[in-house]
Design a binder for these strands. Structure first.
Lengths: 152, 152
DNA sequence: TATTTGATGCAACATTGTAGCATTAGATGA
DNA sequence: TCATCTAATGCTACAATGTTGCATCAAATA
């Protein structure tokens, strides 16, 4: 299995995830979680919105931002700075660990690189406190590649 | 010397750098390069603008964006996604290599971690082309630290 | 010094995300 | 089931960061 596809194990039901964190189980939250769980890669706000539209789930732009923010606060999802301006969001799974991401500079997609850990190879200077490391590789994805869309 | 301070060797004169890349030697470009060369850490557009103001150098917001963009295109500067919304810019030096950066989640500053290379620890899946790796560590800088400003 | 064209400066616009606040609807207990 | 409480929602506005178009200016060159 290619390392950038979705995990195959059964996801935790959205309603349970939400309730376990003491949040109200609402239409938008359920749908957002399900969209992220079904996604094979981290999605931008816009991509989530499109998925909700496709699923016929009405939603407000601001509410969606707030739902995503809440998921991140609760540790249910994680926010990734792709290098473009918009955040991308991925659901955290049981066997989760911090991994690198790949940003395709041609099509803009963000993919997970489960096999590549996001860690620093050396210690920080004295006085610094490390919270987390974010590693983003840039280039062209397999779909865009040399022969692909938008190649120069 | 702490690893996040500016390099001490004499910088290439701005006019030469610009001319060497076939660009026109203009007030804004010279000033921007000098500001970046003098900076001890990557600066945001806003920080560059403030430095120009402080130096009494008139400048337009858009022109500054374009000057920075040109420097990056020419390989004179490098653009860093700090994890916040605004880009940060650092000048490339002779002995330059891709290093990690540190983003202080309290004060928002971006610092260079010259000793920590930005590289992937494993190969990409087949078909992927790597252009560059960006490694950003997040946490609290020495100034903010446990005892510092805004500590919880 | 005149000419050419890259760079600038301005206005308008685009994208992405936030704040305030009245209203709605989950959760809870009677 | 119904009433109640308040977390979420859904508006409208606004903020931050960047981009586009285009007329004008000035750096390089002859």
């Amino acid at each position: 299995m290619p390392q950038h596809t979705a995990h195959s194990h059964t996801p935790v039901p959205a309603r349970e995830l939400i309730a376990a964190h003491g949040g109200r189980v609402t239409r938008t939250r359920i749908a957002v979680i399900e969209v992220l769980q079904a996604a094979s890669h981290p999605l931008s706000h816009d991509e989530v919105a499109a998925a909700l539209d496709a699923g016929g789930i009405a939603h407000d732009r601001v509410t969606l931002y707030r739902a995503l923010e809440w998921l991140v606060e609760q540790g249910i999802a994680r926010r990734i700075a792709s290098g473009e301006r918009a955040w991308h969001f991925e659901i955290r799974r049981g066997d989760d660990h911090r991994h690198a991401h790949f940003h395709c500079d041609r099509c803009g997609q963000v993919l997970c690189l489960e096999d590549i850990p996001a860690t620093a190879s050396a210690a920080l200077p004295a006085g610094f406190e490390l919270d987390r490391a974010e590693l983003v590789l840039h280039g062209a994805c397999a779909d865009c590649g040399r022969n692909g869309v938008g190649a120069p």
